[in-house]
């Protein structure tokens, strides 16, 4: 599974149910922390309205608004643009953790199946790719977890865990380091290391404005910085709902065309 931050993950990392810790903090291994993060980041379904602001080089700024739905623990994802007008109605359906992608072009009313290499494309010039949006279990399947020394960020005690790329995996990062809040397992910072220059931080995700929504701690704001080219992408949840009764028919070509 080739991914960095799954879109489902993007939602879920911001929105992990507040589970009581089973083990004392000092006894948690890196694997156990990531397993817990992964277990908790999979609500049965999610619906969100999202504002995405892409800060390009210089002062260039683009704003996108879209609706997003996921179900079956993030295995199915659907994204439909509301703004800008240029993209209104355009939609992307991702199944099997984004291994299968279909795009619907509202202006031509065409559905096009994309091969998995299309996952590498940036989503509308943002710092998130399509694969960032659609796959959720990559931290378990593509990386080896190792616990580092605990850290403290923004007055929050955090586990620090390194995810090291497994041999044979085709993910785009050599390593990811997560700062996971011990109290609620929300990763408030993630550093992505370059595949070709393993010691270099390539991208950094910062999550903030954590609120309890339906008893789930939810980071309503995140920013992904590309430290390589100086661009960044902000995501703000205008609405988010969990464990809704979504129909599987939403995640079909018929649903994509609606």
């Amino acid at each position: 599974m080739n991914n960095c931050v799954s879109w489902f993950g993007v939602i879920s990392f911001c929105a992990m149910p507040f589970f009581p810790q089973v083990l004392p903090a000092q006894e948690m291994t890196g694997e156990a922390i990531i397993q817990k993060v992964n277990d908790l980041m999979n609500p049965s379904s999610t619906q969100a309205k999202i504002e995405m602001i892409v800060h390009g080089k210089g002062d260039k700024k683009r704003t996108f608004v879209y609706n997003s739905w996921s179900m079956d623990e993030g295995e199915k994802n659907l994204v439909r643009y509301i703004q800008p007008r240029r993209l209104k109605g355009q939609a992307t359906l991702m199944l099997n953790h984004a291994d299968d992608i279909w795009m619907y072009f509202a202006r031509t009313k065409r559905v096009r199946k994309l091969a998995s290499h299309a996952k590498k494309q940036k989503m509308e010039g943002s710092d998130f790719s399509y694969e960032d949006m659609g796959s959720g279990d990559s931290f378990l399947t593509d990386y080896q977890a190792r616990r580092l020394d605990d850290d403290r960020i923004n007055d929050l005690d955090c586990y620090q865990v390194a995810l090291l790329k497994k041999q044979g995996s085709d993910v785009g990062y050599s390593k990811i380091i997560l700062w996971v809040v011990q109290e609620n397992f929300v990763p408030i910072r993630m550093d992505y290391y370059d595949e070709d220059q393993p010691e270099r931080v390539y991208k950094r995700l910062i999550q903030s404005d954590i609120r309890m929504i339906d008893d789930i701690p939810t980071a309503m704001h995140m920013i992904m910085e590309n430290l390589n080219d100086g661009t960044s992408t902000e995501i703000t949840f205008r609405e988010i709902n969990y464990n809704m009764d979504l129909s599987a028919s939403m995640f079909t070509e018929r649903g994509l065309r609606q």
Binding site: R112, K113, L114, A115, S116, H117, A118
Partner: peptide
């Protein structure tokens, strides 16, 4: 048909 073969999108 449309799908994927050897990493390429094919149709």
């Amino acid at each position: 048909m449309a799908g994927e073969l050897f990493g390429l999108g094919v149709w």
